[in-house]
Design a binder for these strands. Structure first.
Lengths: 198, 198
DNA sequence: TATATTCTTGACCGAACGGTCTTTAATGCA
DNA sequence: TGCATTAAAGACCGTTCGGTCAAGAATATA
């Protein structure tokens, strides 16, 4: 998109970089919690430029959610499938992320926040969130399968949903400021399930 | 409050009943997602009456959160401590609630939603949410202790946090419209942890 | 250099927001 | 029957909201 030089005045900002800042705002404060003027000052752009580049506020939110999917969600999925790391460690890292991240940032998970914030109102948001959850669940199955190759498909899926549920819950709880040290041991317990033969 | 007849024109509505409707709105749509006019039409009251009875919008939200605590949260805590029900069934019922409730209502859990919605902005909300989470965690420990009386205190607490995390995560995931049937089996797996001796 | 095209800027818009105030109505009490 | 008190009703307030528009600036092409 960018390298193709087109007629007219060239855009003075990088779309994805700006969108990343917008994502950060919605991530932290939700759809209604972010105003256009906040977006303007965070990006340094005028309202009209934002509208020309991304559409209205709802479109910005959805694009932010899509960016979160293609950046963070698929990044986490890739890490879960990284065979250079022992499967149990991949799972541990995934489940620990909500807690280790909390040290410097209590924003939680944009997916989970969006589900709480917008799922009730906006069907498109709901769909995006659901597919991202699905991506994570499928990725979780990979190390689970490596741990217990004999387990059947539905059992694997069930365990993946359990771990994803725990992940989401921790993401939410952390936002309220609970002591993360008290949540850590739960991960070890959950990983015991992940390794169980039955 | 109500039986004590005071001077002046009597209030024509029941405070807690009205607050219950307000709670429902914030629960579903969050703080910024609910407007005063929505509250007006849902309660049938004028703006000034609402302000006289509850204070400004933020106060309404906090009172709603407190009502949720004293109604729903303590209700769930009581059920978890109900000795007429086998401990494992209490836990199963608690963890199933997010899923069974989803059949007729995908609002999720007000606590979890508030954590995603307002925790970042409002410290009072954060505190309220945290204490409600704490209430639930303590209540979860009761049936856990009944199941494994030999377990030490910290191990109990860790398991309780794990189950609470799973509960919260399911509450959030359900809002996005995921198939609840796929989440159910995770509960059984989690309950295996709850019963483990080690 | 002229033109078409695209972007930036900032003024501008109507609507909706949260919140207040004045008027009127209903009650307890003297 | 007044009088003090409290609530209900709705007009009213300034502000902020999301969104648009017209004018000027920067580029590619001819």
């Amino acid at each position: 998109m960018r390298e193709r030089t087109s007629a007219g005045r060239p855009r003075e900002f990088d779309d994805t970089e700006v969108l990343r800042k917008i994502t950060g705002l919605f991530w932290k404060s939700g759809f209604e919690g972010v105003s256009l003027s906040q977006i303007m000052s965070a990006t340094g752009l005028q309202k009209a430029s934002l509208y020309a580049a991304f559409g209205d506020k709802r479109a910005m939110y959805l694009k932010a959610l899509q960016q979160y999917h293609s950046d963070t969600v698929t990044g986490a999925a890739r890490a879960l499938k990284d065979e250079t790391v022992p499967p149990i460690e991949r799972l541990r890292a995934f489940l620990s992320a909500p807690l280790t991240a909390a040290e410097h940032d209590r924003s939680g998970c944009f997916l989970c926040n969006a589900s709480a914030d917008q799922a009730d109102l906006n069907p498109e948001t709901r769909t995006l969130v659901r597919t991202s959850f699905e991506t994570l669940a499928k990725a979780i199955e990979v190390p689970l399968r490596a741990l217990t190759p004999d387990l059947n498909a539905t059992a694997l899926e069930n365990r993946a949903q359990l771990l994803l549920g725990l992940y989401s819950g921790y993401r939410i709880m952390v936002r309220s400021g609970v002591d993360v040290a008290r949540l850590f041991p739960g991960i070890a317990a959950a990983l015991q399930i992940a390794q169980a033969d039955a």
